[in-house]
């Protein structure tokens, strides 16, 4: 009997121990889960978003370089007709003996003239203004040559009004103006006058234009 009771007590004790063990397991799992959950939550808190907030103002700007009708000037004593109506229909003689016709569309200056005899010089100035708010600089200067026959009897040049050469890198700041001088001359050193054939080559170029055609192109870009 005593043995049976002892065995029962022992069995009860063993059962109790097992129960305690499983309770501990559950508790450990719960703690582990809690720990994992805590870590997850903690991790998401450590990845906060960063923002850089600022304000920026872009000033209004204008880019404009051009020439006005009053910006073309002929020297005193030279016969010039500036900005007439329908200039394309006029011939240089319409401006008077040895006359010249000069006009502009605000961007391009056009001229046509006639040289009467050796030593004659045709010249005028054209003033371009940077009316925008952005500084500009010269990025390209291209000046065509007169045809070979014309070069025997004529010279052609475009410079600043003071005679300085126009070069890449020259500045035209906002509000400033640049005045160019155009000069076409009948050489006074010619030993003989042009023949009729030479005159034809000078006065009628291959592309159908009348006259020795001169082209000057200057490009301004933002400085």
């Amino acid at each position: 009997m005593d043995n049976n009771i002892q065995q029962q007590l022992l069995q009860q004790q063993q059962q109790l121990q097992q129960q305690q063990k499983s309770n501990k397991r559950y508790f450990a799992v719960i703690i582990l889960l809690l720990l994992i959950l805590g870590l997850s939550v903690g991790y998401s808190i450590l990845s906060a978003n960063f923002n850089i907030n600022g304000t920026s103002t872009i000033q209004s700007s204008t880019w404009e370089i051009g020439i006005g009708g009053t910006d073309i000037v002929c020297p005193t004593g030279q016969i010039c007709t500036i900005n007439p109506d329908n200039p394309e229909t006029l011939t240089p003689d319409d401006g008077g003996p040895n006359g010249a016709i000069i006009w502009t569309d605000g961007n391009t200056v056009y001229f046509k003239h006639i040289l009467a005899q050796p030593g004659d010089v045709f010249t005028f100035t054209a003033k371009y203004t940077n009316t925008g708010s952005i500084d500009a600089e010269v990025t390209s200067v291209v000046m065509s040559s007169l045809n070979a026959t014309a070069q025997q009897f004529m010279t052609y040049d475009v410079t600043y009004a003071n005679g300085d050469a126009i070069g890449v890198g020259d500045m035209l700041t906002a509000g400033a103006s640049a005045t160019f001088k155009v000069t076409v001359a009948y050489k006074d050193t010619v030993a003989t006058l042009p023949t009729a054939e030479q005159l034809a080559l000078i006065n009628e170029t291959a592309d159908g234009h009348t006259g020795a055609t001169s082209l000057f192109t200057i490009t301004y870009s933002q400085a």
Binding site: I65, L215, T217, I218
Partner: peptide, 16 residues
């Protein structure tokens, strides 16, 4: 931001 300006002309020589 770039502008190209041109000066284009034709010259004639009178018969002399």
């Amino acid at each position: 931001l770039s502008t190209t300006l041109n000066i284009n002309g034709t010259s004639k020589i009178k018969t002399n």
